[in-house]
Design a protein around this nucleic acid. Structure first.
Length: 323
DNA sequence: CCTATTTGACCCCA
DNA sequence: TGGGGTCAAATAGG
């Protein structure tokens, strides 16, 4: 399904994407070169420019890719389906009967979930991980055949308390420039709206180009090798404003779920881009802005899905095979 | 203590 | 039959 996303693209669009990717890569290289050859002051300026360029590429790619969301269906077991609601019950019953062996519990899981089959899914790629405005909780990670990087599985934090069935998968699909593919399944049914005021990125965050940018300029990735970092699986949103630093060893882990715990904030997010036709809103032009632009989501916040992008990276090389 | 993450095992389906 | 999606025990972290 999502592996064929490019094949399904009109050739002209595919070419455009290729060109953009190329431009993006070249810009990243240029940045490296410039950084080495100029002083600090100029460096800041140049970096800003490069960042803008990268953001332009990223935004364009996002739009192109986003407009091509897979309509491949997928499905999560219906809420309330016997499997899923009964899981705990069955487990409890097992324990109550005194047969709480792991084996028995495991056996009890048989047939307890349906593989998603044909429900709506939306896939898009971006050069950085994006925070889509929802609280996600990671529930799995897996090495995929013929893929260099593991795939990470997330479900909505409100899966249980609000029966929200939204899930997403994130996988790094390319390096240099880094590219992540995020696939959303299902829709959020949880009440998880974010107030516009909270939809502003930390201005001090030097390189977290935020918002509609899909690229954090890749500066960190390019200049540092994250491979050995002891990173969490995912950079965390919660730390985004203070933790994101050159020393990526303390790379935040992207875990919107943490956001959730951050009090009150769980519901402080906008809906996921996957939920609405947010692309059309780009036409307004006021959403996309330069580097570090604050989100002007005020005018969109309620109906626009969280399009806050942050410069979070996650290093999956840290992951080890789990199969 | 509670919640999130990790990760090996389980299970569905192509 | 095996790849991929999910579960859930163990572990980590606040």
């Amino acid at each position: 399904m999502d592996s064929s996303w490019q094949e399904n693209l009109p050739s002209s669009r595919k070419k455009a994407i290729d060109e953009l990717l190329r431009g993006q890569e070249i810009a990243a290289q240029l940045k490296l070169v410039i950084n080495k050859s100029i002083g600090f002051d100029e460096s800041m300026f140049v970096e800003d420019l490069v960042k803008k360029i990268m953001n332009s590429f990223s935004s364009s790619l996002y739009i192109l890719n986003g407009g091509e969301f897979d309509e491949v269906a997928s499905q999560i077991p219906p809420v309330g389906s016997p499997c899923w609601d009964d899981r705990k019950t069955s487990k409890d019953s097992v324990e109550s009967t005194g047969k709480s062996t792991a084996e028995l519990k495991v056996k009890d899981r048989r047939g307890c979930y349906k593989r998603r089959k044909s429900v709506h899914s939306r896939t898009y790629d971006s050069s950085t991980l994006t925070h889509d405005g929802h609280a996600w909780r990671k529930y799995g990670q897996k090495m995929i055949l013929n893929a260099k990087h593991p795939r990470n599985y997330f479900r909505c934090t409100h899966k249980f308390d609000q029966q929200c069935q939204a899930t997403k998968q994130v996988q790094k699909i390319q390096e240099e420039p880094q590219l992540y593919r995020t696939t959303y399944y299902g829709h959020h049914t949880c009440k998880n709206l974010l107030r516009a005021s909270q939809f502003v990125s930390d201005p001090s965050d030097h390189d977290s180009s935020i918002l509609i940018s899909f690229n954090d300029s890749g500066d960190h990735q390019v200049s540092k090798k994250p491979d050995n970092s002891l990173l969490a699986t995912y950079p965390t949103v919660k730390q985004e404003c203070c933790n994101r630093e050159g020393d990526n060893m303390s790379m935040p882990s992207y875990d919107p779920a943490t956001y959730y715990n951050n009090q009150g904030s769980s519901s402080d997010y906008l809906l996921s881009p996957a939920d609405h036709d947010y692309m059309s809103r780009f036409d307004n032009g006021d959403v996309i802005s330069g580097v570090n632009s604050s989100c002007t989501a005020s005018s969109h916040s309620l109906d626009m899905d969280g399009i806050m992008i942050e410069s979070v990276d996650f290093d999956d090389d840290y992951f080890h095979d789990i199969n």
